[in-house]
Each structure stands twice: as C-alpha cells, then as structure tokens.
Nucleic acid binder design. Structure first.
Length: 553
RNA sequence: GCCCUCGUAGCUCAGGGGAUAGAGCACCGGUUUCCUAAACCGGGUGUCGCAUGUUCGAUUCAUGCCGGGGGCACCA
C-alpha cells in the first residue's frame, strides 16, 4: 500500500538525516500519512515535521526542508513539496497510476486485498436471532453488516469464522412450545389459553396448523406439559429452518451454528462456574449465586444461578464465551442490537474475570432500523398487521437494495430504511447508480468486442490516459487497497458503499468526457483497459458489500 | 438517576488532531446524428449542538451542559 511506502520513505530519510547529524531527534515509531482534503495539496501528506519540530528545536518548515533533502526519489513520486505550516506533500507520478492499473488487471478478483501486519484468527458472531419467530428487519441489518465485515476482515488477511449462536434452551423455549401447544388445542376447538408472556404472532398458529396437517390430533392425548415439550423441539427446528432460508435469500452464510443446548449438555456451565468459584469470584446471597463483576468494571454484581437453581442467560453466555476462547480465537467480535448494550459491561467483566485478556472480545453495538415509505414510518405489515419481517422486506425491495441499504450507515447510527427509495430504479437510488456503472462498462466491452477490440493490457499504452477524468478515475481505482484496509480496521463496512459510489461517479464522468471505442486503436486499447479495470474494482467492492454486479440492466 | 449512542448544508448522512469541512437528495437551468440519459454539466448554502480544557493546531480528543434515540431483571 502506498501509505506504507511513503512512511518508509520518510523513515529512511529521517534516519539518514539523524545519522549525518543534521537532525537531532529520536526516530519516531510511526509516521502518519494522510490524504489531504484539498486536492491541490497533492495526493498524500505527512505532518511529521510539525510533530518533530519541538524535539528537534527547529521550525516545522525548516525541518521539513531538511527531511526532504535526505529523501529518496522513487519513480512513483512526481513531486514533493512543503506547504502550509510545515506539511510535506507528495504528488504521485503517472507511472504510479498506470502501475496500479496493471496491478488491477493482473490481480483480478484479488485486487484490493492486502495482508495486515498481524493476521488474527477472528470469530465474528452475528444475527443469532432467537429461534422462536421469524427474523425482523433489524436482524437483516446485522446479517448484512456481519457478513460484509467477515468478508472485509478476510480480505485484509485475517482468518475469519462466522457463527450463529442458537438460543435453543431455557425458559423461552418452554414458553414457545407452550404457545404452539395452546394454538394446537385451539384448532381442535379448545379455548385459547396462551401462557404468560406467550408468543402472540400469527406464525405460531401456522406452526400449529402444520403439525395438525401432518400428524392430526395425536398429540391431544398428551398432557399439556408434554405437548409443550414435544412442540418446542419440533417448532424450533421449523423456525430455525426458516431463519436459514431467509439468510440464504440474503446470501449470508455462516461457517458454524452453535447451539446453546450443547453447552448445557456438555456440562460447560457448571465447569465455568467452578472455574470462577475457584478464583474466588463468586458468592451466595439471597439464595442465588453471584459473580463479582463489579471488580471488573460492571455497575453491579450479577446473578449466575437463580435462587430456584436455574442458571441465568448470563451464566450460559459466560460458558459460551469461555468455549469460544478455548477454540483459540485471537479476537471475538459480537454484533449486538442497541437493546443489548446494557449487557456489554457484564460480559466484558466476565471475560476479564476469566482472564481472557483485555481486548479479546469486541462488541459492536448497532443502532436500530426504522422503516420508512414515502417519508412515513412503517411499523406494521399491511398484510399481517404484525411487525414487518425480514422476509417481507426482501420480497418487497429485493436482495441487492436491501443489503446495500443496510450497509449504508455506520453501525452506531440509527438507520432509516426508505422502502420506496430502495425499490426505485432511478438515479436517486445509490445501489442502482453503482450497478448501472458496472452494466454500462459491460456494455462498452460488448460493443468493443463487436468491433473486434478486446481489452488486453499488454497492448495498452497507459501514457495515453492523460485526460483529467481518466487520471481521476485511475486515482479512485488505485485507492481500493487502502480504503478496504481502513474499513476493515475501523470495522466500518459502510465505507465501502461510499467508495463504490465514488468509483461509479468517477467512471460516469469519464464516460461522458472520453469516448472509449474510437478510430484511434491505441487510445481505444488504453481506455478499454481502464474501463475493464474499473469493472473489476466495482465488482470486487460490490462483492465485499454482498451485492451483485450485473452485466446488463 | 445511571449507562450507551447520535447532534455536521433545507433533508438524509459521510468524514475526521491539521492547511479553503464533503456527498446524495431536494430546487433551478442545460446536455442525446456518438460505446446504456438508471448518465452527465452548471448554479449555494454551514456558529460542524453549547461551554471549558488538552494541543503548535480541535469540527475531530477530554469533561460538563442541552437536545434526539436506546438501555438499566434472579428475561433472553
């Protein structure tokens, strides 16, 4: 990545300046290379002279001059200048731009990927929707964000595993089963008696009906408790299948599905509680077993085992996270909805209590999704009168717009999802804007093929690409590795949507100013290569977003 | 009350210790004998919520306040 090259360049220059005695300062550990906001300030800039000024006892501008004197002049640099209060501005040469074009052609689908300095084994857990009902729209956001983040982290060289945690144990499963049982009996004419906190949704009746359809009334003979037990198992499987189907529709896949029940079955809960007990981190009070989470930064201590002998969800989560650590991940990333943020401190406290290390667990709290249609909030589905499900949204707007829209905002901002906009096939809709650029390029390439021209890099003379819009497009394309790397380290896949739009804009501008296929064969080849490279980069970025790159629209 | 998060253009938002703070939409006007007009070009807006602090430099970091959203179970 170019930033690293520039940082090394300065580092080497500084070393020589220090060795020669012209500079009296310690060698800084890191050199910041930033992108100036103002284009006239060059492609990249360093503030190192201002940083070192105090220690070196020199005014920043003079110091910058000294540094520049000792700098190498690699061929990728066109110009180095001092500006403003002491910035060192770099302008890249056209050779650098054409080199990156060559690179795009050579690397193809791999262009934009990179290798982080310290590759980690990362597990990312997201969605983990409770298997007691259909996924709602918020789950869709975490599916889109989580899947994209997983792709992003892998693209910069981490070893990534995605996981869906299935809460298939405990009270909610009992209530779920009892709810289905109540609906089942209702179908056979009994009065409806939903359990306390029972599930209300219409899908419960659907599940009950399905049981009636396949097995008839044979469960009526069972006691209600046995019906509930039977149905919770059965209905849970059904719901989980449904969840999996919805995720497939979103093109989101998980490397592993982890069942909470297996923790209980394998004695993992008592194991972790014993572990914490041995470290003297638990105590009994009011009949319950508590974990001293306050000692690790929580607001109050938390219950592990209720007075009635039942473990809490928190206890299961501790066992689960302990299990994850045992599986050898360097980093655990959890994506949770904002409604779970109050839970963060205690889980982090538990991680510390278990000695898992300060930064082992990273919890991304995502704000909620609000549906809008034509400026009006949409809360309930017109069809069912209940919460709009993710399935309904996907059926309505389609996968590509859904994934793109879910990704458009940073996770810590609430997302207003405009259904009408997502459906509209106009320039207002960013997903179409980007896809249209890709389709348009494919069309140009088809046209060129008809003219017996094909974009083969070898024959292209990139020096011919000197138009301002060509340069701008090349600069945009050359940015991919650093944009992707920064998006990954900031856990900010939404930046990809902005980048995709930037490339598309640069391309559309170029298209209107430069004719690709013309009588000038050399120029045509050069431009076809540029256009093909643009196609490749858009495709790669859209892949990271999880959106298709259509050949025709 | 406590905790988290947001507050940037008319609207939706991006950005982020630096040099003149960006994009899309909306609004007005223009572009097609030519590779996709789902496109492009031109036109203008900001006390970056307020205050204090840290810094050579703060819209960005810290603290407080104000305002929006969310959360504060022996629920999951």
């Amino acid at each position: 990545m170019i930033e690293n090259n520039l940082a090394d360049l300065i580092q080497n220059g500084l070393r020589r300046a220090i060795d020669s005695g012209h500079l009296k300062t310690a060698l800084p550990r890191t050199i910041e290379i930033e992108r100036p906001r103002e284009k006239s300030h060059g492609d990249w800039a360093s503030n190192i002279a201002m940083i070192l000024a105090k220690e070196a006892r020199q005014p920043p501008r003079a110091l910058a001059e000294t540094i520049i004197e000792y700098l190498d002049k690699p061929d990728y640099l066109a110009e180095v200048e001092i500006a403003g209060p002491g910035f060192i501005n770099f302008r890249l040469s056209s050779k650098w731009l054409s080199d990156s074009l060559t690179q795009i052609c050579e690397l193809g689908d791999a262009y934009g990927r990179s290798e982080v300095e310290n590759p980690q084994k990362i597990q990312i857990e997201f969605v983990s929707a409770n298997p007691v009902g259909p996924m709602h729209v918020g789950h869709g956001r975490w599916a889109a964000v989580g899947d994209s983040l997983a792709r992003l982290l892998a693209a910069v060289g981490h070893q990534v595993e995605s996981e869906f945690y299935i809460n298939d144990w405990g009270n909610q499963m009992r209530i779920f089963g009892a709810s289905v049982a109540a609906r089942y009996r209702e179908i056979f004419g009994e009065a409806l008696e939903l359990p306390e906190d029972g599930y209300q949704g219409h899908y419960i009746t659907d599940i009950a009906q399905e049981i009636v359809d396949t097995d008839g009334d044979k469960y009526l003979r069972l006691k209600p408790e046995d019906q509930s037990a039977e149905f919770s198992k059965r209905a849970y499987k059904q719901v989980l299948e449904h969840i999996k189907k919805t995720l497939v529709a979103m093109d989101v896949s998980f490397d592993s599905w982890f069942s909470e029940s297996t923790l209980h079955e394998r004695g993992k809960l008592s194991e972790s509680m014993e572990f914490l007990d041995q470290k003297d981190l638990t105590y009994r009070s009011e009949g319950a077993l508590w974990l001293k989470t306050v000692d690790f930064g929580d607001d109050k201590d938390r219950v592990l085992m209720r007075a009635n002998g039942e473990p809490t969800y928190f206890a299961a989560d501790i066992a689960y996270h302990r299990e994850k650590v045992e599986r050898g991940f360097d980093k655990l990333i959890n994506i949770w909805g904002a409604d779970h943020h109050g839970y963060v401190k205690r889980v982090q406290a538990a991680m510390t209590a278990m000695g898992a290390g300060e930064n082992r667990l990273e919890i991304i709290i995502g704000q909620l999704v609000n549906l809008f249609s034509g400026g009006k909030a949409v809360r309930m589905s017109k069809r069912t009168g209940e919460m709009v499900t993710l399935d309904e949204l996907l059926a309505d707007v389609g996968r590509d717009p859904a994934r793109y829209f879910f990704l458009m905002r940073g996770t810590d901002t609430a997302l207003d999802f405009d259904i009408e906009l997502a459906k509209s096939q106009t320039s207002e809709n960013p997903v179409y804007y980007v896809q249209y650029a890709h389709a348009r390029i494919c069309s140009i390439l088809r046209h060129a093929a008809d003219q017996k021209l094909t974009p083969i890099g070898k024959k292209a003379n990139f020096n011919l690409l000197a138009h301002e819009s060509e340069m701008a497009l090349m600069r945009e394309l050359a940015d991919a590795p650093s944009i992707i790397a920064r998006a990954a380290s900031a856990r900010a896949p939404h930046r990809l949507t902005k980048y995709a739009q930037d490339i598309a804009a640069a391309f559309h501008q170029f298209y209107h100013q430069c004719r690709v296929v013309s009588d000038d064969e050399d120029l045509s080849f050069a431009r076809l290569t540029l256009v093909d490279a643009t196609r490749q980069v858009i495709k790669n970025v859209l892949w990271l977003i999880g959106v298709s790159a259509p050949q025709k629209m």
